[in-house]
Design a protein around this nucleic acid. Structure first.
Length: 479
RNA sequence: GCCCCCGUAGCUCAGUUGGUCAGAGCGGCGGACUUUUAAUCCGCGCGGCGAAGGUUCGAGUCCUUCCGGGGGCACCA
């Protein structure tokens, strides 16, 4: 079958036609043709000529006339090719093209009897020959593996896929617009780091040959960004890839896009207000019309109240593993592992019993200190509860953001690293390595700061209603 | 790492309890057709059923292993 295409290619060359010409000037996006003439009446003709270019996706022949569908990034338009307009040779060559070929065409706008805006083609040119057949035109491409591994075919075959990734791009652009307008500075910090940190995750390790030294792909941008706040940049953000050497799941890709921002003279309440404002702004900019109510303010409740609401358990009244496991049993939750630490048990309750229920956007405030080595101690909670000023934000049943009032007391930060060092020694592969450069930076003085991390892939999932991260990542990790 | 499921033409799929089961639609090729849009009509199958073994008189159809994929669990605070 591909041989047919190669034969055609050679025939074109033999006829002196370049199947891969270098350029084609003066192309109008198809959407602009629709904008200009979408309101024509069925059967109405114009004298207005357009030059369009794109991929041939369908052909409906009628002897001495043929309809062809042409698709570009902005949309689809029908070409009407007539023998009496084009002449024999141009007509024959046009109608013997293969689906998937890229062509440019000039034609005047008219609306067919059935009401479809079309171009009466009077000239055309092959812009690139396609040597492989495109996916099936009606059912589209559905095979998941092909859609992910060969995304270009997904984009060719499925308009939904095109729309989704346009949406993703617009989401990212809107985020930048919002932050730029609010006086944030976009910065870039190292992806290759001598020490990883800022999140609990196992890193990818690589090696610098000349330095003969291992480096890590960043798992977060947090610590470098806070050093910039120390440096006086005050409002910074970075939007980029993080890498975590963990499992792949519908919510997890080994490399994923994260936004982190840090704002001096702000705390986690300010971060929450900014997040809901940002997301509402983005939703408006991309025309979100889904089921979620993203209008601020979003629901806010404490971690303690959230777990109590969905499980009936007051975790702060049972602040050690045995007590918590036993209270959970009374409430009919028997799958807690008594050998786990208390904070991990709390996290387990949150992720299994609360998170899946959080459909509408919701902030969960005030986490145990042990889970949050970079968050400031809570200003008003009783000290024995050992809570920090941290929230996570959930929507559509998944976590989308995490934020703190940043810990800026260098002595306390040093103590937290010491505690993490002990965890690391005890075998916790996700404990934070001691980052002396970061502590030194804090010793120079960091203003009170609110910081937040927002998972861009997950935000796009929420805004597009997709349930797998692989749907919103162009080239997701595959086995 | 564990469990379940899937893998048939370029694409989307159908193939009862193993015996014309190698099929359909789209695409392709040839022909008809100057307003169709999953265009229509006529003709042509272009793969040997993910791979390798095995059971059987006979295997897409049963068994084993391997490869690839999906889902779930664990993990991912």
């Amino acid at each position: 079958m591909e041989d047919d295409r190669r034969v055609k290619l050679e025939r074109l060359r033999a006829d002196g036609i370049d199947p891969f010409p270098p350029d084609f000037d003066g192309v109008t996006p198809i959407a602009r043709v629709h904008a200009a003439h979408g309101t024509l009446e069925p059967g109405e003709e114009t004298d207005v000529s357009f030059r369009v270019a794109g991929r041939l996706t369908a052909r409906r022949g009628h002897g001495r006339a043929t309809f062809l569908d042409l698709v570009d990034r902005s949309g689809r338009i029908q070409l009407h090719a007539r023998l009496d307009v084009l002449g024999q040779e141009a007509f024959d060559r046009l109608t013997s093209l293969d689906l998937g070929d890229l062509i440019g065409a000039d034609g005047t706008a008219f609306k067919s009897r059935r009401g479809e805006l079309s171009l009466r083609t009077d000239a055309w040119r092959l812009l690139a020959k396609s040597l492989r057949p495109p996916p099936e035109k009606f059912h589209g491409l559905e095979d998941t593996e092909t859609r992910y591994r060969r995304r270009e075919l997904d984009l060719i075959a499925n308009e939904e896929a095109r729309r989704l990734f346009v949406l993703r791009s617009r989401v990212v652009a809107a985020i930048r617009r919002y932050l730029d307008e609010h006086d944030f500075l976009e910065v870039e910090t190292p992806v290759l780091q001598p020490l990883y940190g800022g999140a609990a995750a196992r890193p990818f390790t690589t090696h610098h040959n000349q330095l003969d030294r291992d480096l890590y792909l960043r798992i977060a941008t947090e610590l470098y960004l806070k050093r910039l706040v120390v440096g006086g940049l005050e409002r910074v953000y970075e939007l980029g890839k993080n890498f975590r050497n963990e499992g792949i799941s519908p919510k997890h890709n080994p490399e994923f896009t994260m936004l982190e921002w840090y704002e001096a003279y702000a705390d986690y309440e300010d971060a929450a207000a900014r997040l809901e404002e940002l997301v509402a702004y983005v939703a408006g900019e991309v025309g979100y019309s889904g089921e979620l109510d993203l209008t601020p303010p979003w629901r806010r409740l404490t971690l303690r109240a959230a777990i109590e609401e969905w499980t009936g358990i007051d975790v702060l009244a049972a602040r050690e593993p045995a007590a918590l496991v036993s209270v959970a049993r009374e409430r009919g939750i028997a799958d807690l592992d008594a050998s786990e630490t208390w904070p991990r048990l709390v996290d387990d309750l949150l992720s299994k019993h609360v998170e899946p229920a959080l459909d509408q956007p919701t902030f969960i405030f005030d986490y145990p200190e042990e889970l949050s080595p970079f968050a400031k101690a809570h200003r008003s909670a009783s000290p024995e509860d050992r809570l920090v000023e941290r929230f996570e934000c959930f929507a559509a049943g998944i976590e989308i953001a995490n934020a703190f009032s940043e810990l800026n007391d260098p002595h306390e930060q040093r103590a937290r690293f010491e505690a993490q060092r002990a965890e690391l020694a005890a075998g916790d592969e996700e404990a934070q390595p001691f980052d002396e450069d970061f502590v030194r930076a804090l010793e120079h003085g960091m203003p009170p700061t609110g910081g937040l991390g927002l998972g861009i892939d997950r935000l796009v999932m929420v805004l597009s209603g997709r349930r797998s991260i692989r749907e919103v990542v162009l080239f997701p990790a595959m086995r």
